[in-house]
Design a protein around this nucleic acid. Structure first.
Lengths: 309, 309
DNA sequence: CGCTCCCCATAAGCCCAGCTTATGCCCCCA
DNA sequence: TGGGGGCATAAGCTGGGCTTATGGGGAGCG
């Protein structure tokens, strides 16, 4: 087994794609882990055994670690392979959610289930629901339109959508609704920030007078915050994506305000810390909505039931 | 601009990799979103502008949706593009965690920081810490060894590791420790399972007498559960990866027992529901450990401080 | 034993995705 | 009215990943 040429680690931030195996390879690794054989995994993915063999091998070369123990009776993961497989599973899971969302995003007039949803819900919740829906009804074609509450209502009333999801404080007229979950905007800081060690809740006035990392004006999140603070939120930076806001907060640029849906993982891993706030109503209901009288039926009802467990 | 040939959606579960753009394309999309220009994004990733243009275009063809609005003054995301970019961000984030872990997994005798960790910690927490560490000290080379508590202790005492992480109930002799987090094993079921609607905690006896979806014997998780139940856990299925256990539980195969670290996202999205249990001690401390007297210094101390925020 | 089956590895050749260089068009601004 | 930033198109190259074909090694069995 010749020694591996070790390149000097390319520590530069540049393009992660060259250091991480592609999705196909990760999927193959998961299949090998599950099935215990390169050949079986290859068959499942519809490729030949030599292709699988070579692909796993080049992945091992790329990572500099042996991933599977080959034997004439099958292949098992090494210890390192088990770890890598777990991490790979998380990448593939995210890719599946991407796929579920993207499929729905395709414009198809003939989709059997047309969903209109607000941004936060479309971003963070819908892909998971769609995965679950597809698990139960693989053939349901879904189309998705994302917009603010008014746009959602418009689509529903025009008969261009079967089910809507909104996150506002009020329900647009002409629609029936059911609360499916709750969301809050929360203030988060990096663990090193002084606010991370506060015992007492932050007064609303102090929040309003502190420059914050925020989404751009016009975003749903920003509107809710501005309303709650009486139009007073002071931006330290304005960024155009939730991810960018999170990244800025994690790096310690300052306090950020985000939906708690967006930062679940960061809080769990202690990369961000929630700062309790006093005297501001940042809670909001997430609701499913439909035209008054037009009870959701068929796939729409199924999706609705998924959202409530 | 030619109409797009629409393929019949290949609804078969087969290989997601053909339906999701590769990591390089997702990264490029994120760069375009952040920089507002194809050319600028291309420069950042070290490719030429035509390459970026063509890559974005083929991604749009693959997804069947326009992602960016091109203008002679730059490019902005479309609404659909903003959604796709958010989903892409989650895939790339998972890939970065993969990369951080994988880099550490490389065997390098000369690594400046050698970490030994138990499986759960290595799987779910270390990649995040390593990302944070790299953000602060980009040049720190880390090596990672994953194993059970005894193995971690052995490495530390032999001077082959600088810092360890264990999840047992006790601290191996010869080591000093600090509690860095808490973990619990929890019982989870799919939302449709009858246990999901329980009001009262499940008695330990009922848990012990019900067949469960479990990790294989010998895994740390399994050991803790068997100890807590007095060696009585009855397997419904035994699976060899946390992901497989989760998937089985989500699909409704039965109740599963897992670390809460492993199911944070599933609980948030209501794909799994926690079942409270009474009369069993399933909590455990996660600890950093080091040889008695050898206080962590340098990068080890930095990593340690990251784990506590 | 020797036959057969199921593993996996290697070799040789093909093909396409993605890159590069070289242009050209469009728009804005000095 | 040039110049520069931004995007698109064209032509050509390269390499990664696939396939088919083949060989070796262990296990089970007549």
């Amino acid at each position: 087994m010749g020694s591996v040429e070790e390149q000097p680690a390319d520590t530069a931030h540049g393009s992660i794609a060259h250091r991480v195996p592609d999705l196909g390879a990760l999927e193959l690794l998961l299949a090998v882990a599950r099935l215990g054989s390169l050949g079986a995994a290859a068959r499942e993915l519809g490729i030949t055994q030599p292709a699988a063999s070579s692909r796993i091998r080049s992945m091992e070369r790329q990572l500099g670690v042996a991933l599977v123990d080959r034997s004439p009776r099958g292949s098992r993961l090494t210890d390192a392979g088990a770890l890598v497989t777990d991490w790979a599973g998380r990448v593939v899971e995210a890719a599946r959610a991407f796929d579920a969302g993207a499929q729905a995003l395709r414009v198809r007039r003939d989709s059997r289930l047309r969903v209109a949803a607000s941004m936060t819900i479309a971003e963070y919740l819908l892909p998971g629901w769609l995965l679950a829906l597809r698990a139960g009804r693989p053939d349901t074609a879904v189309s998705l339109l994302a917009g603010n509450s008014a746009a959602v209502a418009e689509r529903l009333l025009a008969g261009e959508a079967d089910l809507g999801f909104v996150e506002g404080l009020t329900v647009p007229p002409g629609l029936d609704s059911a609360v499916i979950a709750h969301d809050r905007l929360i203030v988060v800081v990096a663990p090193a920030h002084p606010w991370a060690r506060r015992r007492r809740p932050l007064p609303a006035a102090e929040l309003a007078s502190t420059p914050l990392i925020l989404r751009e004006k016009g975003s749903g999140t920003r509107q809710v915050l501005d309303t709650a603070l009486g139009g007073l939120a002071r931006p330290l930076i304005e960024l155009s994506s939730t991810t960018a806001v999170k990244a800025a907060a994690v790096s310690g640029a300052g306090p950020a305000v985000l939906s708690e849906l967006a930062v679940g993982e960061e809080l769990g891993l202690r990369r961000l810390v929630e700062v309790p706030v006093d005297g501001v109503a940042l809670a909001r209901d997430l609701r499913a909505v439909w035209p008054t009288g037009h009870r959701p039926a068929g796939p729409a009802r199924e999706l609705l039931s998924l959202t409530r467990g």
